[in-house]
Nucleic acid binder design. Structure first.
Lengths: 189, 189, 189, 189
DNA sequence: CATGAATGAGACTTCATTCAT
DNA sequence: AATGAATGAAGTCTCATTCAT
């Protein structure tokens, strides 16, 4: 027996939404993978949209917490902060690659509710503030923070999409190299 | 009157697939936007999958041609080649933002046929060969080319996703800055 | 605390069946209103059809008993008998309006079993015999008893449907007037 | 081939709603009886509720027109008017017994929209005004018109319910007798 | 006994696809 | 060649019923 059905449903939905997308995933598919009856899903979630929103919020919160835990905010060394974020992102991706890809591919979706959108916006805000700080310190290049986030976040997610396909192997060297590349992308030269 | 119905259908499908995804787009939606009868779509495409594949191939070819046209291959100056690619990508994105986003969001989809996959792989190969060259010249950092492509391509597409939402404005300064960032990401320091 | 669960279930079902009909009422609805678990209903009734039949029979028997109690059968004065029936019907309607409406709206339903049908037919038979008697006495007009019953019963039930909606107020004068109308409808002139 | 599909659907729905009720009738049932695909119903009606409302309005309008056509309004002879109404009601019942029973059994239903309710209320209003007139003339007994309508309409509909079951045969004598009974019910004595 | 979580059959509805016009 | 009415398979969701607790 597994922990509980709600978790099973969320796990199954995560894998399917990440790989097939929301519209490409049917409720019976989720039920089958979660090993529950189709009707059971509706005991835990009002409808399919509720489910995707609950899942999205869960993933964003986990991602956010993963990064914020023990965040080196005090000293304000931007390089160290960047390294921290990347390390945690790697951890998150290793532990929950589907969570990462799901959040990425669904972050602008039309069926997300306001709460979901807000939660994701807050997450981006956290990153933005860091970058603003770094720009003030003269460490980060003077482009709009949204652009800088796009560059780093986009690069990171795409890398894991490729890793996921098996074309690329995730090794410590690779990750270290990528971290450096991304840092080089946004730092002042 | 517009050019011809096949074009109208492809245009309508492109916009819808780019914004709602393949599974979130219905054939009647496409027909309505293309201002043709639903049945007409089946005179030009065998089915919905045929349509998405035709469209994908069209977009990838246009993207590929956009980049390859007048490509500075002779001298082999990697920096100039990189600048060329970026410039053309910017042009492509400006002219056909939906084409860019569609290709990106559908490039690993389960309903793409072998030809579609091959065409996209060829496009990536072209980029890979350039990077391999650059690495040999000692200009590009020694990471797997797949990783480097992910970084640059991922950064680029994500930037345009954000521009598309209106959060960020596309200005010459921004584009120039981003180009530099991406170059800094992958060059040897 | 209420009397007992079976009663609670029957009460809840009566209200719901009377207002929403059998097919428009779900078992969970009944359970919620009866303040019991949905499963509990199945300890007292084999299934939803059993429940509606039990309830129908209960209501018909109560209606029948209400009328038959102290029925002035001996003297055979048809006018007095008619007055008796109407008075008791008024009482029944006042005490259990839902019982009246439920029986009326479900009396020909496809899910009633033979026992339910028989019980209701017996009730109508009782009325028919009275009318036959009255016709022999030359007091009641010479139409088929089924027609006469339809007229009086139909008029009566419809009146209470309207009262139920609040359009009409139930006053002694109204009831007396209606009784007279119904008597005038079927008596010989 | 039959006239057209929308008519076929309405006809099938009428029979089924009249005999099984709205909640006891499934859309596939209607489709089968109308000899159309289930999806076809949704080309003509937005959903099941739209269908029942369209049908209700159609039936009420037909009933209303049947009565109002050539209505002897000028002379104001209430007895003649009453006879006219009954005659037309008989005609309507003969031509479209299901229409009559459907309207009756669904006239207070929770899924009727405002337009449906209004149309039915207007129909009752027409009858009410006639009775008010008759009361002023001293021909009709002094009870609330709503009560008088209930008596006559209730009697009438119930009669046809019984005729429908086959227990009673519809003969000119019966109808004439019933008309007289109903008139006696509400006239001044 | 009583419960309510769990289920799957079946409800309503959508949509890719066909075909007569 | 073009259409859009028609279809039925399949999607989302509900609910009568069961059963472990």
């Amino acid at each position: 027996m597994t922990k509980n059905k709600q978790e099973d449903i969320l796990d199954a939905a995560l894998l399917l939404f990440a790989t097939r997308g929301f519209d490409g995933t049917t409720v019976p598919m989720i039920a089958e993978r979660a090993k529950v009856g189709a009707g059971t899903i509706y005991r835990y979630f009002e409808n399919k949209e509720s489910l995707v929103n609950a899942l999205f919020q869960k993933c964003v919160m986990e991602l956010s917490e993963t990064i914020k835990k023990d965040f080196p905010i005090s000293n304000g060394d931007i390089r160290e902060q960047f390294r921290h974020i990347f390390k945690r992102m790697f951890n998150f991706a290793k532990k929950d690659i589907n969570g990462l890809l799901f959040v990425d591919s669904h972050s602008g979706a039309r069926y997300l509710n306001d709460q979901s959108k807000k939660l994701f916006a807050d997450f981006l805000d956290f990153l933005r503030i860091l970058l603003e700080n770094g720009k003030k310190q003269g460490m980060i290049c003077q482009l709009p923070s949204e652009a800088l986030i796009s560059i780093v976040y986009g690069a990171f997610v795409r890398l894991y999409k490729v890793i996921q396909t098996g074309v690329l192997e995730e090794t410590p060297e690779l990750l270290k190299g990528v971290e450096e590349c991304c840092w080089n992308a946004i730092r002042v030269h």
